[in-house]
């Protein structure tokens, strides 16, 4: 399969041009992803601009340390994925598979911590509709709505990223002959974007004071 991916296709004059196009297409796609989350960030910024005090109060009810731990987990997984791409480029498919497994384990850990947090928020009575005991239907409810929309959409992206990373173990393989790491490189780009989005979600939702 990877031989197919790495091979020159008829519409490209050179392999170098084909690889450029591969990464270019992926980066354009990631740009659209940034804009999807941009809308959610815009809503959160407006909420903060209009209701500063309530926004800070809601943010203080977040589990700051779990969010911080999750940031560390995701940053670490990104570093592991970057190492994986280097391993693929160097022809170390076996090492790449180990690194992929490590990154996937960290991604699953992120999701586990995230859902633990959702459980705690349910217990705290901060979940709109399901457990709204401590919500008052004002900016605080709006904050939690946006919190679940943003982190939920992000968790969905983490899940998609995990599937993409797993596909490099099976069925596509970690590219023993793909010295430019086209497929692995693009999967890595997606994973790094998911990481960057969380880097902005963390101060926006957890660290407003």
């Amino acid at each position: 399969m990877m031989g197919e991916v790495g091979r020159l296709q008829p519409q490209f004059p050179t392999l170098a041009r084909q690889r450029e196009a591969d990464h270019f297409g992926m980066l354009i796609f990631l740009t659209t992803e940034v804009l999807i989350f941009g809308g959610l960030f815009a809503a959160l910024f407006v909420l903060r601009a209009e209701h500063g005090a309530e926004y800070v109060k809601s943010s203080k009810a977040m589990h700051l340390w779990l969010g911080g731990l999750n940031t560390a987990v995701l940053l670490t997984s990104s570093a592991v994925v970057a190492l994986m791409v280097e391993a693929v480029k160097a022809g170390g498919a076996r090492l790449a598979k180990w690194l992929l497994s490590g990154a996937i384990a960290l991604g699953l850990m992120f999701l586990a911590i995230k859902f633990t947090e959702y459980g705690l928020e349910y217990r705290d009575g901060l979940v709109p509709h399901l457990s709204p005991r401590n919500l008052h239907g004002g900016p605080d409810t709006l904050f939690m709505d946006l919190y679940f929309a943003a982190t939920g959409l992000h968790a969905l992206h983490v899940t998609a990223g995990l599937a993409l990373l797993a596909s490099l173990i099976w069925p596509f393989g970690a590219a023993p002959r793909d010295s430019s790491a086209v497929l692995a490189g693009n999967a890595a780009l997606y994973w790094h974007l998911v990481d960057v989005i969380w880097v902005f979600l963390y101060p926006t939702l957890y660290l407003a004071r």
Binding site: A79, V196, V199
Partner: peptide, 9 residues
């Protein structure tokens, strides 16, 4: 942080 991730990773 984004600059580091974008530039290096």
């Amino acid at each position: 942080k984004t600059a580091i991730v974008a530039w290096i990773f």
